Computed example of a mutant assay.
Amino acid sequence: MDGRQKWQDLAPGKRRAIIVAGVLQLLLQLAALHDLSRRTPLEVNGPKKAWVAASFINFAGPIAYFVRGRKK
């Protein structure tokens, strides 16, 4: 056996945590992509295409965009 658990073998609390984390990741990414689509290139630090690509990096990409990607 390779040591990995199947979805059915996980405790209900772990299943909920995975679902919540997935939904949170999706919402963060959608928020970052929506914000990027409404900004002009002059309102973004760096190329918009790079920030779109970075938004696909779990949690870190969208958070980095909101912290560093937007100009004040």
Results as ranks from 00 to 15, higher is better:
9 D>F: 00
56 F>E: 06
69 G>S: 05
23 V>K: 08
46 G>C: 13
47 P>Q: 03
17 A>I: 03
8 Q>M: 11
40 T>A: 10
36 L>Q: 14
48 K>V: 15
18 I>Q: 08
3 G>W: 07
24 L>P: 02
61 G>Q: 07
52 V>A: 03
60 A>D: 01
58 N>A: 12
29 Q>G: 05
1 M>A: 13
21 A>L: 15
14 K>F: 12
45 N>D: 10
19 I>A: 06
2 D>E: 11
66 F>Y: 04
21 A>D: 09
67 V>S: 05
35 D>V: 01
19 I>W: 13
55 S>W: 00
70 R>Y: 00
46 G>Y: 09
28 L>P: 00
64 A>S: 15
46 G>H: 05
14 K>T: 06
47 P>M: 08
69 G>A: 15
22 G>C: 01
29 Q>C: 13
62 P>F: 13
70 R>N: 01
35 D>L: 04
72 K>N: 15
38 R>W: 02
58 N>E: 04
49 K>I: 07
38 R>H: 05
47 P>K: 03
44 V>C: 07
30 L>F: 07
14 K>R: 09
54 A>S: 15
44 V>M: 00
4 R>T: 13
51 W>L: 00
47 P>N: 10
18 I>L: 14
22 G>K: 03
63 I>V: 15
11 A>C: 04
33 L>A: 03
15 R>K: 14
3 G>H: 09
47 P>H: 04
23 V>M: 15
9 D>A: 10
41 P>A: 00
4 R>W: 12
13 G>Q: 14
12 P>N: 14
40 T>N: 12
11 A>N: 15
55 S>P: 04
20 V>W: 14
17 A>W: 07
30 L>E: 12
70 R>Q: 15
40 T>M: 05
26 L>M: 03
18 I>S: 06
38 R>D: 05
63 I>T: 04
55 S>C: 14
46 G>E: 07
44 V>G: 00
16 R>C: 09
4 R>D: 03
37 S>D: 15
21 A>W: 07
61 G>V: 01
5 Q>V: 10
30 L>C: 08
64 A>D: 09
37 S>I: 06
66 F>K: 04
41 P>V: 04
4 R>L: 12
53 A>Q: 08
60 A>Q: 08
66 F>A: 03
15 R>C: 01
19 I>T: 14
68 R>L: 10
3 G>N: 12
16 R>E: 07
17 A>Q: 11
10 L>V: 03
6 K>E: 13
1 M>T: 09
23 V>R: 05
36 L>S: 05
35 D>S: 14
45 N>S: 06
32 A>E: 02
40 T>I: 00
4 R>G: 08
44 V>R: 04
19 I>Y: 11
34 H>I: 14
6 K>I: 03
